[in-house]
Nucleic acid binder design. Sequence first.
RNA 1: GGAGAGUUGGCAGAGUGGUAAUGCAUCGGACUCGAAAUCCGACGACCCGGCUAAUACCGGCGCGCAGGUUCAAAUCCUGUACUCUCCUCCA
Length: 426
Amino acid sequence: MLDLKMIRNHVEDVKAKLATRGVEPEAIDDLLAKDNERRELIVKSENLKKLRNEVSDQISQLKRNKEDANDKIQEMRKVSQDIKGLDEQLENIAEEVESKAAHLPNLPHEDVPVSLTEEGSVEQRRNGTPRTFDFTPKAHWEIGEELGILDFERAAKVAGSRFVYYVGDGARLERAVYNFFLDQNNAAGFTEEITPYMVNDASMFGTGQFPKFKETHAGYEVKDEGLTLIPTAEVPLVNYYRDEIIDEEKLPISVTALSPAFRSEAGSAGRDTRGLIRMHQFNKVEMVKIAKPEQSWNELEKLTTHAETLLQKLGLPYRVITLTTGDMSFTAAKTYDLEVWIPAQDKYREISSCSNCTDFQARRAHIRFRDENGKLQYVHTLNGSGLAVGRTVAAILENYQNEDGTVNVPEALVPYMQGTTVIGKK
RNA sequence: GGAGAGUUGGCAGAGUGGUAAUGCAUCGGACUCGAAAUCCGACGACCCGGCUAAUACCGGCGCGCAGGUUCAAAUCCUGUACUCUCCUCCA
């Protein structure tokens, strides 16, 4: 959520910046017009409330002195009705203002490449050289199905499309990958958490999923319970601090969690219909940082380079790109995507997204700290995948495949696989 | 799922219709070489609005939350969330 006062004071700047994210300037004018109406009503209502307080005091005095207060009581009866009417109007308008404001995305950082589409993203760096195969590399789903470690067909029978069973060494590999990530994150100073996988509406609003998430049916809500299956552990990790004032000395805070992520993938019909790339349920190890404003940009760099070390240690080639204004998620001010090499597709695919959400989520979720002057300030929140587990497994299967259909286990994972170095047919 | 109790400022804790006691803490002052203790005084969350150079000032709001009754609600009524205890159920 953007600060309304800030918008009021920097109208043209906000319009220009949000235009790069596809927001019509009229949306801002609209919001401010409603906000003016709102503030006018506040003044009217508060003036009447002041009057009521004063006269009530007089009534109270009169009653104490056993004097007649009927005139004043009659007068206040009318005033109270007026207040009620004004407050009802006010409530409606305030809701409109809130709703309009809640639909505006975060302001992009000035470094972010300006583009309404994903075209124009800037490659920051590459690491590792994609392997040259002396045979035609297979897609990971082919490898997985032939080895009997991924079963999409039965998952479709039991749940539907975009679900999978990991079986045997497949399940062990998935578990090895996320345990490796969690251990690495722990070693890098992240505190591990196991969070709720269903959250309430306030939490979904706090991290910026609601209201749009709801409107576009991007996820799964549990009928009649007011709960939503988390689309990412970012939601419970950040909302842990919702409505709290954090001790300044504790910042920056770094937390990490493995969780399944549930996404309806509405609007993705026809994209990545096979394999592990786009699922309704997938495991992800998420990292979240809560930082002071002056720390957050440096923390974003640290978060990103830490995620990169995970890919480096697994020996997977990747590149880092800066997303464009139009391609970033709603809450982000700046996002780096890590893209891992997927041989069968002959391209890099997103495996991590690291964002600084500045005070955008903190304002929605009311997460603050008291600075050295004793003043309350909103924290900055950052999140990054470290990493998407299913996509990592896909990348391992493809990058480490052998001509005979077996797959080597990356060295870093061998201890996590109880010494298994090659996954073969059982 | 059932029954009961509780939820008041940073903390503790009064207050059953007239508009939030008091204590601790905090801030200022006195005393002191200085500090502690003591004494005097002030402030009362967060938020919103007005006026602003302003974190100054004025006002609103504010007793878990949301409604209702009333000229007036922490106090009465309804609903609801959470916490604790007991029962039930369960991993």
